[in-house]
Design a protein around this nucleic acid. Sequence first.
DNA 1: CTTATATGTGTAAACGGTTACATATCAGGA
DNA 2: TCCTGATATGTAACCGTTTACACATATAAG
Lengths: 308, 308
Amino acid sequence: MNETGYVHADTRKRVTEAMKQLNYSPNEVARSLYKKKSKLIGLLLPDITNPFFPQLARGVEDELQKGGYRILFGNSDENDEKELDYLNTFIQNNVVGIISATTNKSKTNYANLSIPVIFLDRTSSDYPSVYADGKEGGRIAANEIVKRGSKRITLLKGPAHIEPAQDRFQGALEELSRSDIDFHVMSTTSFAFEDAEKWAKELFSMYPDTDGVLASNDIVATAILHEALRLGKKIPEDIQIIGFDDIPQSSLLFPSLSTIRQPAYEMGKEAAKLLIKHMDKEHIHQQQIQLPVTFIERHTTRKVDNNG
Amino acid sequence: MNETGYVHADTRKRVTEAMKQLNYSPNEVARSLYKKKSKLIGLLLPDITNPFFPQLARGVEDELQKGGYRILFGNSDENDEKELDYLNTFIQNNVVGIISATTNKSKTNYANLSIPVIFLDRTSSDYPSVYADGKEGGRIAANEIVKRGSKRITLLKGPAHIEPAQDRFQGALEELSRSDIDFHVMSTTSFAFEDAEKWAKELFSMYPDTDGVLASNDIVATAILHEALRLGKKIPEDIQIIGFDDIPQSSLLFPSLSTIRQPAYEMGKEAAKLLIKHMDKEHIHQQQIQLPVTFIERHTTRKVDNNG
DNA sequence: CTTATATGTGTAAACGGTTACATATCAGGA
DNA sequence: TCCTGATATGTAACCGTTTACACATATAAG
């Protein structure tokens, strides 16, 4: 007997002792079946192998664990079919909520769900979501690199289907357009390091006199950094590089990477908190939580120089 | 009707169509309740935020996903209570198997489980397990650094409660003892980068003339590398460093890190395969799968020199 | 016509909990 | 004595499947 009715202290004790003796633990499956509710939530990430996501995942877990929730986990690889597949098994297993960092553009996969869904690292006007201010991040990056004297900037545009990549690109584009600096845009279609190495080579062969690169994320920035070093360029004297995300390894590079930091762990936590509020049917004021982004000055950018 | 009895093709078609129209999908919870079996497996890792583990996790997922299994995921932080807690909820949710990369020494937590358990990145004589040959890795590392001319070696001993850390230490110790090289051992108690930075400082203040470091893993090696660089040492001329694991960022460091590679992704896959075999009650020949380890020569070690 | 086989329908128990409700006992207060 | 509240016990329906089995019908083979 949990919660209701009159239970004498002695009886309660006898029962708990019996439970211990038989080492009984309630079957969550049966409970879930009757209640049509479990203590499970679904977490869908593009690829846990991408160093940005473990932080997110950990934030989510740490927060959900406090509420006694457990995580059903899947990698979507940004593949619509896989995503739908996971979503189905999530609901088949009676999850009470979903946190998704991946999405088909239209979000049709999520339209008919009767449980709360939080988008993480993704924006949405229809669904609650938690994300960093990518556009502002792009602006900051552009502003900082210009302030530090780069004159021929290459702006890397991330994969078109990845929302946050486009936001940061737009922000940077906006800011660069406002300046009187020469720049060109180079489009990339993946965030994999092996691909990034190719873009890096291409960049320096097409635009050998580039003296500033705004990378679409830290992985791409790392590839650029490597290639620049390989070509004998001095960093940050000959070329400045600013990344995006501030994944853990960025501070470990040499020279360490200046970047725009997204607070990944906090984003995960916030998403979990927001989900719990939704599941508790609390009245929610803020459906969209935008976290701030900060410039982390390290050694791929020069010290700021007031003379330009 | 699945499988049994006579079903006319037409009827089958009518049924599937009806399913589609009502967009019915079977409730796994009810199914699981009756069968006392789910399609869920529990995956327990120390900390997904440690760059070694995402690869493992991905290997596990990719393989299990093929068999239609889904993952209930938890981070234990090598904390016995947390581990036990997750184990309990795993069984309460009718998981059909567990893959664990974490353990209380005695493995008492696993003693009374009626479902197959595979230890991953951990050795065990009582349970099936998948791990890399850490001892041999330690030997190789010691041999390679000696071969390349380091004369005053510091051997870093990882946290005592982490099995693989001890294996690689023993291997290196054995090999160094056999040589006529001076070396000293320094004990560390964590793999966190922030702590590693402290050991690095301590190492160079205690043994300033060290010309070779065998690190307990790549994170620690990275910290050593940083500190050496900060002190103005030339790498690999003044000091050679060999890491362990070959986490993705090791090739991205500057100079890039020579290390002993563990095939993390494959280890995850093998563990999943072995688990599936156990669940299918196949007769298992090899309960312990040891994967080979390889020396990855990069730029924190000198080119091999036959003169010593 | 009988029988075997193919196909379809219907009923009910079981899985392990939760919830509702009915009932029984016993104390103390009116 | 009667009533009320605290405590304890018992019964049954329900959650959505799976499985077993009984029964009905049609068609083809002997």
